[in-house]
Design a protein around this nucleic acid. Structure first.
Lengths: 173, 173
DNA sequence: GGAACTTGGATGACCCGTCAACTACTCTGG
DNA sequence: CCAGAGTAGTTGACGGGTCATCCAAGTTCC
């Protein structure tokens, strides 16, 4: 699984660089979104997903898949956004367990106003700085890592049980 | 500053890929760190920085620079970690405003136990999946973006004032 | 020396996200 | 039909992070 010796120069450069870029970029985008539109990144993603869906309606489950979020995260987020009048929850006649989230006017206006600015910022602070080759390289890296993580998660889920403790926390070393 | 039209396929692929990788990787690393060592990523970074410093002591300010954190963030984090007995704050005789953060035994043990496992995970879930060329490409991308963000921030700080509202939140579109 | 400014840090309020229950509905096999 | 298993979502507690504000100690300049 990779050894635990300290990182080599090449690894270190890539990792610290990536890490710093990642947090700086995230902070920057979140700030401008909040400042310019009064939306958090989480708000934006939810609104964007809803807005891209016909009728601005989406089952909670589909929304969760689209965003790749945990269910409690979505639940909290939707509650907060509903309190602000950006969207609302409706029961789903087809399956009483699930619910449908739907965009309200206020939410639609918010996303339609925020999207161009956000996209422009994303380009200015990130996409436009990179060559097409770099964009492709980044996409490939991401896909490689995501494929690995997904495969890994699958294995973790398949494992009947027991395993979680096999080489657990305070194990000998 | 980059326009606000929707993302092109190449941009979209790079951006969504990057974004998903970024959050998935972060989640994964944080989870295993928490599970295996009872440390959050923030804990880890603080302890690691302190541990890399001679005597396990660092002025708050230096620690903040090393981590690239906001001052209130470090303040909260240090308080929480002090409550858990991982480190402690001491006054700095040279400048009564500032403080020195120093690693306690409990903290030293924690980081020494966590580091190899964390590094191994980082390799297994990220570094080892990429070719040397990809590592270099990622480093270059990161450095490009970071340089841009840093330059940008500088400009923002230099601007006498006024600007923050120039093309403000609810501006016409 | 003292007013004005700067700097290092602490604090409280508030949002975000995770985890661990818990509820309520649906499905499946006897 | 009913017991159990699985699924969708909610909730509360808690750690994490940001922002605005405050405070105390230094610095500058007259």
């Amino acid at each position: 699984m990779g050894d635990g010796t300290p990182l080599e120069p090449r690894e270190l450069r890539a990792w610290t660089g990536y890490q710093r870029m990642s947090s700086a970029l995230q902070a920057r985008l979140q700030q401008s979104l909040q400042r310019d539109s009064g939306l958090s990144w989480a708000d934006y993603e939810v609104l964007f997903a809803l807005h891209s869906s016909p009728g601005g309606r989406l089952r909670s489950l589909d929304l969760r898949c689209a965003l790749g979020w945990e269910k409690s995260r979505l639940s909290h987020q939707v509650r907060r956004m509903a309190e602000r009048g950006l969207l609302c929850r409706e029961p789903n006649p087809a399956d009483a367990r699930s619910a449908v989230v739907c965009l309200l006017d206020r939410g639609r206006r918010a996303i339609e106003r925020a999207a161009p600015e956000y996209t422009a910022r994303l380009r200015a602070d990130f996409l436009d700085l990179l060559t097409p080759a770099q964009l492709d390289a980044l996409a490939e890296i991401s896909e490689t890592v995501l494929a690995h993580l997904a495969r890994d998660e699958e294995e973790l889920a398949d494992r009947p049980s027991a395993a979680p403790d096999a080489d657990g926390p305070a194990a000998a070393r």
